[in-house]
Design a protein around this nucleic acid. Sequence first.
DNA 1: GTCTATACTTCGATAGAC
DNA 2: GTCTATCGAAGTATAGAC
Lengths: 211, 211
Amino acid sequence: MSGTRPAGAEGSNTRTALLDATVQLMLEQGYASVSTRKVAAKAEANPALVYYYFHTMDELFLAVFRRGAEANLRRLEQAAAADNPLRALWEVASEPHDVALTMEFIALANHREAVRTELVAYSRRFRRIENVALASAVRTRGADAGRLSPAALSVLLGGLSRILAIDGVLGITDGHDEVLALVEEYLQGFEGFPPVGDHVPPHRPAEPPPA
Amino acid sequence: MSGTRPAGAEGSNTRTALLDATVQLMLEQGYASVSTRKVAAKAEANPALVYYYFHTMDELFLAVFRRGAEANLRRLEQAAAADNPLRALWEVASEPHDVALTMEFIALANHREAVRTELVAYSRRFRRIENVALASAVRTRGADAGRLSPAALSVLLGGLSRILAIDGVLGITDGHDEVLALVEEYLQGFEGFPPVGDHVPPHRPAEPPPA
DNA sequence: GTCTATACTTCGATAGAC
DNA sequence: GTCTATCGAAGTATAGAC
């Protein structure tokens, strides 16, 4: 889509090392400190190789993003198919490593158009999968677990996991326990009601947790 | 605290123009695109003046942060003293301009120790004022408005306002209306119960909103 | 695929004239 | 307070030998 010269093969060890180094740099020192020289140094490779594999810094960032995005979406799909989708989705959204990296890309998107476009597309895919999972999860369960719509739940999941991560990095944890307890309460209340099948009667657990 | 040579006077027009230009650059293109030359260009000033007033880039960022932080804390205190503190606090936390700038500083704090220290100190001050206001607001009102502790409320306020702002910038608004309606419902439920004085009996509103 | 060498740009920062 | 001129470091990117 971008240039004429083909990029380096995807399977290459060096290429992977460069991608890993970029992620590390972003997490440790922020996206702004990612440069060809530093990436190469961390990957123990020659700086010119960055251009051999990615041509431009933009493509390097995009490659890092796409790799992480695909991995994340796979995890999301697994979570959507889990026994307790709501809890699994919460756990995916709360992954500190991913949240931190996503935050960097959000900041990066602020001045790299290509990253921005990719991020928006990814966000939409993520929310869409999440919403479908949440909708089916809420639909097949009873009680007030379904008081919130999938879209709203999605926003809440994203917002809470994100601020908990940001605060955590800054060493601020006031109120976190309580919010986590609140989430836990909600999740357990939800899990108290097993899926409602069309023909098979629900298998009642021996000791349902309190609503 | 930092150097020997004194910085330029605070009242200077040029100094203010440089600070404003820095804020603009951060919002438009991200903190990484802030350089002495670009700042000077946007402020229509000579690049060397940046060093005359701030000595280093670190001090420039810190000055921008402090100015915004003080303004924010003043607004927060006004909100805390408002008739409807909860709603006022929500509005302060939701200010898109401030949220965006704060996000930039969070990212910046990732690789500028001085900014990080300042940001943590500010966050603690902010939460502390907010918590006191929330505590007193919750204490003087009845009903289930007080189901959440001030610390938890603080986290929720911050998390929701932040993700709404981030999504908004990216053009993603699914579920926002619903979450805003949820917040509105909560705020109105809270406002349905006027402050409970020690001696004056509460004035019952004509039509209290549903619990 | 990996390397050296290099062109060109921009950066932070300082010295010193005015 | 404002300016010009300049230093050295680091950035992106390319050419070309191996």
